[in-house]
Simulated scan of single mutants.
Amino acid sequence: MEENNQTSSVEEKITFINELLKKNNISEAEKELKLIQATISSNEILNVYESKVNELIKQVELATSETDENEQLSNSTNEKNEKEKEKERKKESKQKSISYQHYTNERYGFSLKVPSNLKMAPPPTNGDGVRFYSEDFEVTAYGNHTNIISENETIETYYNEDLNSIPVNIAYKRLTANWYVLSYEQNGMITYKKFFFGNEVANTIIMTYPASEQSKYGNTVTHMIESFRSSAY
């Protein structure tokens, strides 16, 4: 009678442990397995359940291993995300630390913000534009009248002229009804040009910097382009 009670109790615990595993309650299943192992090892009559218990142990070890792998993957992903966020925060902080000076062209009416650390070249006598520069960065902005050299000019007139004059592959280009953008690399230098077209005047901004310094100047270029105010339209 006592033997039947012992075997019945072990079978019930094995069933209970299987239910815990189905519910993915690994830690509780592991505790129950340790108890049932102690019971079996102290009673020869219950040795017949050793193989079943060993199988359950393997399931627990496998489940634990998968959980650890998932946690490691999650931690790795979180760590990567945090590094990316920190990188973005540093970029934003660096961008905010750059002070800008405001420039307005009286003749053609355009304006933009330029990093204060850039030097300003002597302006041309006709007052059509300006050039700012440093050791490895340069920005030129200027205006001109349209429909002077030829009649019935369109934005495509200037766009096609630029495409035909650039001797290298253009990495990025976009044409709209009022402006176009061209960006390309030549001799290790990136050139970014944005042209604004109007019926009477056009405005142009061109920036050049080393391709190796893309991460350094990318945000600065974006900030200046966003600050540019054209009088063309």
Rank of each mutant, 00 (worst) to 15 (best):
K31H: 07
K31V: 10
K31Q: 08
E32Q: 15
I36S: 06
A38P: 05
T39W: 03
I40E: 01
S41E: 10
S41H: 11
E44I: 10
I45C: 00
N47D: 07
V48N: 05
E50S: 12
S51M: 04
K52I: 10
V53M: 12
L56M: 13
I57V: 09
V60K: 03
E61D: 11
L62T: 14
L62A: 10
T64Q: 11
E66C: 08
E66N: 12
T67C: 06
D68I: 15
N70Q: 13
E71P: 05
E71F: 13
Q72A: 07
L73N: 14
S74P: 09
S76E: 14
E79Q: 14
E79Y: 12
K80P: 07
K80E: 15
N81H: 10
N81E: 14
N81K: 14
E82D: 15
E82F: 14
K83I: 15
K83V: 13
K85T: 13
K85P: 05
K87A: 15
R89P: 03
K90E: 12
K91A: 13
K91Y: 10
S93N: 12
K94P: 01
K94I: 12
Q95Y: 01
Q95D: 07
Q95A: 09
Q95C: 03
K96H: 04
K96N: 03
S99Y: 02
Y103V: 03
Y103R: 06
T104K: 14
N105M: 07
R107A: 11
Y108M: 07
S111R: 10
S111M: 06
V114L: 00
V114R: 07
P115G: 04
P115Q: 03
S116W: 00
S116G: 03
N117M: 11
K119H: 10
M120K: 12
A121R: 03
P122A: 11
P123R: 06
T125V: 03
T125I: 03
G127H: 00
G129L: 01
R131Q: 06
R131C: 03
F132G: 01
Y133G: 07
S134D: 02
E135N: 08
D136Q: 04
D136P: 09
F137L: 02
E138H: 05
V139T: 05
V139D: 00
T140H: 05
Y142L: 08
T146M: 08
I148S: 11
I148A: 09
I148R: 12
I149Y: 05
N152F: 14
E153N: 10
E153K: 09
E153S: 09
T154Q: 09
I155D: 02
I155G: 06
E156A: 11
